[in-house]
Design a protein around this nucleic acid. Structure first.
Lengths: 111, 111
DNA sequence: CAATTTGTGTCACCTAAGTGACACAAACGG
DNA sequence: CCGTTTGTGTCACTTAGGTGACACAAATTG
């Protein structure tokens, strides 16, 4: 495939968001690498690389044979931020702002 | 250089944030591609590619000889969103949240 | 007008990261 | 216990996007 629908970095980001926001709780099982690969139409190694990145961050624990589960202390985002993010998204949506513009502005506002 | 300090995509994002949030106003001049290349330690072509991307988005206007300036109708983010982003960043900072975690959570909350 | 500035285009080259197709070891489950 | 599931590792190959070093055309400047 010449243009992958998702890169390993994007897959990583996807799960990272679910985990750090607490939407995926500690102990919960992630889909298998082969599941992810099939669902997103990427190669096995690409999904595997994403999981490796998550493990490097200690966001998940992978064991061959058993699957991959969310690590114990993985809800890293404060409740405050989660609430603010919900408001921001509502506001931006109401104004038809684009996700990319919002992300860029957050990055800019951060420094 | 094996590991570029910034990729063209990152440089693009940087300016995109400044422009869509209105921090760089219409008509304002951007640094020259050579300036950007020198300052960030990237190759000329890398900075040029970033500017090309900005132009594809109609965020800037480039003319050989003259420089690159912010396009007329380029403040694309709503005031509401800008305000919410300011609050979010304050909140996240106060709680020691990481930028990457916040970005990931915003992405997740969006869908 | 002449020199400079600035964006653009091209060259050969290198590396990161994607691909499919495997193989293997650890854990699980009937 | 034995077959299946699952994460991991490797292979050769392709592509996107970096690199430095140029050259060129258009706009600005003195």
């Amino acid at each position: 495939m010449s243009t992958p629908p998702q890169s390993s970095a994007e897959i990583y980001e996807q799960f990272r968001g679910l985990i750090t926001s607490g939407e995926l709780g500690a102990g919960e099982r992630l889909p298998t690498v082969r599941q992810v690969a099939r669902d997103l139409g990427v190669a096995l190694g690409t999904a595997a690389r994403a999981y490796k990145m998550l493990e490097s961050d200690h966001l998940v624990v992978s064991r061959t044979g058993a699957g991959t589960t969310v690590a114990a202390d993985s809800a890293r985002l404060s409740k405050d931020a989660v609430v603010q993010i919900r408001k921001l998204v509502a506001s931006a949506r109401a104004n038809d702002d684009s996700l990319d513009d919002v992300i860029s502005a957050v990055r800019t506002a951060w420094r």
